[in-house]
Amino acid sequence: MVDDAPYMIKALRDLLEAYGHEVYEASNGKEAMVRYAEVRPDVVLMDLLMPTLDGVSATKRIMEQDSKANIIVITAVGKSGLEKDCLAAGAKKFIVKPFKTKELLNSIESLART
């Protein structure tokens, strides 16, 4: 989980742990790259607007590290064109806040299985 909003991380940690997932945190793109190398998670949930390194760049860097990485972009910015940029950078899914928890869980589980 990469997000600079602490309560967002906490809420998603509570949700995902309740469904038996293990959650690792990073609060910006740079930290996410380091954590990804250490943990190699099945799925990355990536926020877009973050200090140090933004989500699109972080997605690109992680994909360079591991071309099989499963990255889901979660963003508050619903701008058109942004989704295309994220998918081009290698993200598998693009989810706009606010979302239904079911929608997120389904996306995570279908990607984790691959």
Binding site: M8, A11, L12, D14, A18, A76, V96, K97
Partner: peptide, 19 residues
């Protein structure tokens, strides 16, 4: 959007009795 997501996520977790 972010605070709304946090609140709605917890609401759904309560409804699902995950908490």
């Amino acid at each position: 959007r972010t605070p709304l997501t946090v609140v709605s996520s917890y609401t759904e977790m309560f409804e699902e009795e995950l908490l």
